[in-house]
């Protein structure tokens, strides 16, 4: 009303192209991309088999088993929370599916829906504990880590429940146009979550809540809802991962997905997310996922001692965190 037409001073016209260029220059992920390319060059020089289509597809298939969760974990970590119960959630999902289908004769599609709904409810519960009672998600999901694992073992007596369904196995081990089905799930999850994070009010609210919860709340963003939703989404992806593994193993199994939380969090951190919240991106996590998957694959191809592989994985995460901290400090000094 009062402010209608204002003389605009200091207006500098910038073309979209120039803007895009500046954006690319400022992109955080450029360093990680370089490291990923370097890893590919080194591994393909060391092992002639590494760059073959078969091996690359197998990398993608293996990447799916933690990457789907990693994308959702990125949203959780950007919102300033964490979920360390995803491995147990996957194991519980697998066990529940086995019990429903094998012991109770529930039709497969119904069982799948039930399992995902249960996971969503548990995840939302952890989010609600955070939002309404101030229980840190680290503690809430630490409790779930134990409880869900125990529940899975209780349901199955810790024995695999063989599932007999050719159509179901196709999910874990099948191929579409030569591409492993899990890799397609990985790509699908990526697309859905990147659209959510970049294009929706909810997605941008995650960044606002993680970056400055107080300011977000004062600006009218529903902080509690955001926290509950991200915890629900990551639980759903954990359940999907459990189902994919069930299909691959052809049995409901309480011992699967051990260490899933590590790979998912590691991929997110390598992708540039800050555990303090507000910072991180799905694109960065894609590179983190590919980096871990290629590294694991490469170490197997080069027959690195399995114990040494674990040391390398730990060292990589530590290095990634150090680089992040160093970069943040540098940019805050500027």
């Amino acid at each position: 009303m009062a402010v209608a037409d204002v003389e605009v001073l200091q207006k500098v016209p910038t073309s979209p192209l120039a803007a895009a260029f500046q954006r690319a220059k400022a992109w955080d992920g450029i360093g990680l991309l370089a490291v990923l390319v370097l890893l590919y060059v080194v591994l393909s020089l060391k092992s002639p088999y590494f760059l073959t289509t078969d091996n690359q597809l197998s990398i993608l298939q293996n990447a799916a088993f933690f990457g789907i969760v990693a994308f959702a974990m990125t949203l959780v970590i950007v919102s300033g929370e964490i979920d360390i119960s995803v491995g147990s959630m996957a194991a519980l999902s697998s066990s529940m599916l086995g019990v429903f289908v094998v012991n109770h004769g529930v039709p497969m599609p119904v069982a799948v829906v039930l399992v995902i709904a249960a996971a969503a409810a548990i995840g939302a519960g952890a989010g609600a504990m955070r939002a309404y009672f101030g229980v840190p998600t680290f503690i809430a999901t630490l409790a779930l880590y134990l409880a869900l694992k125990g529940l899975a073992q209780l349901l199955t007596n810790n024995f695999p429940l063989p599932i007999d369904s050719e159509r179901f196995f196709y999910w874990g081990d099948g191929r579409v146009l030569g591409i492993p089905v899990p890799a397609l799930y990985l790509a699908g999850t990526f697309l859905v979550l990147i659209i959510i994070s970049k294009k929706t009010v909810f997605g941008r609210s995650i960044y606002a809540v993680g970056g400055n919860a107080k300011a977000a709340g004062l600006s009218g963003i529903n902080v509690r809802r955001v926290k509950i939703l991200v915890m629900m989404i990551v639980a759903i992806t954990a359940a999907i991962t459990g189902l994919l593994q069930t299909a691959l193993l052809a049995s409901g199994n309480s011992t699967i997905a051990v260490g899933l939380e590590f790979d998912a969090i590691a991929a997110t951190i390598i992708g540039g997310a800050a555990l303090s919240g507000g910072k991180g991106s799905i694109v960065g996590t894609v590179m983190g996922v590919l980096f871990i998957a290629a590294l694991l694959n490469g170490m197997v191809l080069l027959s690195v001692n399995p114990y040494a592989q674990q040391v390398v994985r730990g060292a990589v995460v530590l290095a990634a965190v150090l680089v992040n901290v160093w970069r943040t400090r540098k940019s805050s000094l500027e």
Binding site: V78, K199, T200, V201, F202, R204, Y207, A208, G210, G211, N212, K214, A215, A216, L218, S219, G220, I221, G278, K279
Partner: peptide, 27 residues
């Protein structure tokens, strides 16, 4: 400051009243 460092200038300026349809932001 009540700004969110991880959001863009435009997103910060309009925070809490992002124009949207069906949950999708109208950039």
């Amino acid at each position: 400051f009540s700004l969110v460092p991880g959001l863009t200038v435009a997103e910060n300026i309009t925070m809490g009243r992002w124009p949207a349809r069906n949950g999708f932001i109208n950039q």
